[in-house]
């Protein structure tokens, strides 16, 4: 393997190993709080762990991501809804997995927004059902969203034709979600807050795996 990187921080130990505690901060003691320094630096004792703990605020870009992704997920759920009566076994199972995942994620995103006092897009079953009747303008503001025409085409398909269309559209839809995640992390200060960081990375990992599966299924069908 070429291009190994030797990454070493903490080149200089200011104090020899094993004889640091006496010379620097006092012992943490039972139940005490210690804050280490940079590599090689001594640790110090903190008076109040709460004051020294991080408290990252979420950003406007975080909120836009969560709100947008709720709509994005809602359309995916509307697509899986169509699969229930139209798809073959394999695609129906895939659709079921996507439905369970994205349903829960919608709730997670709603709770995240609610807990932070931000506007929460409500996605009722009714709303999901009518998701595909939204206008082209509404649909086009997020990557991967299907147009009204595409949704109608999916709704009117069945059997093998439906399976092919569903996989093709859902792969496109998932790829759009990956773009949204990439855009989130590219925004200044976004994606730092712990919960949204973990959530977005999970969406990314999950949907990338599903894209791989659906691509394989598509290959088989063709």
């Amino acid at each position: 393997m070429t291009g190994w990187r030797i990454v070493l921080l903490g080149l200089i130990l200011l104090v020899p190993l094993g004889c640091r505690s006496g010379a620097t901060a006092g012992p943490g003691g039972t139940g005490g709080v210690v804050i280490p320094g940079a590599p090689g630096e001594p640790s110090r004792v903190a008076a109040d762990a709460r004051a020294a703990a991080p408290d990252f605020q979420h950003t406007e870009a975080d909120v836009r991501f969560m709100q947008g992704m709720i709509h994005h997920h809602a359309q995916a759920v509307a697509m899986t809804d169509l699969a229930r009566t139209r798809a073959g076994d394999a695609v129906r199972r895939m659709a079921h997995r996507i439905e369970l995942s994205q349903d829960d994620e919608i709730q997670i995103m709603q709770r995240w927004l609610r807990a932070r006092g931000e506007a929460v897009p409500e996605v009722s079953a009714e709303h999901m059902h009518h998701m595909h009747h939204m206008s082209g303008d509404e649909a086009s503001f997020m990557p991967g969203m299907l147009t009204h025409e595409q949704m109608m085409r999916l709704e009117n398909a069945s059997g093998r034709e439906f399976d092919l269309l569903f996989l093709e559209y859902m792969i496109h839809h998932h790829e759009g979600a990956l773009i949204m995640v990439a855009e989130l992390f590219a925004s200044e200060g976004a994606g730092y807050e712990v919960e949204i960081h973990d959530f977005a990375r999970h969406v990314e990992a999950d949907q990338a795996i599903e894209i791989r599966r659906m691509t394989a299924m598509l290959e088989e069908l063709r």
Binding site: V7, L8, L9, G10, L13, L17, G18, R20, S21, T24, A25, G26, P27, G28, G29, G32, V34, P36, G37, A38, P39, G40, E41, P42, S43
Partner: peptide, 22 residues
């Protein structure tokens, strides 16, 4: 972002001895 390494030989007072970035 990577793996921090702490010396815990003095269990009362762990110190960061290295931090390998990845």
């Amino acid at each position: 972002r990577g793996v921090r390494i702490f010396d815990i030989s003095d269990i009362q007072n762990p110190t960061q001895v290295a931090a390998v970035q990845t």
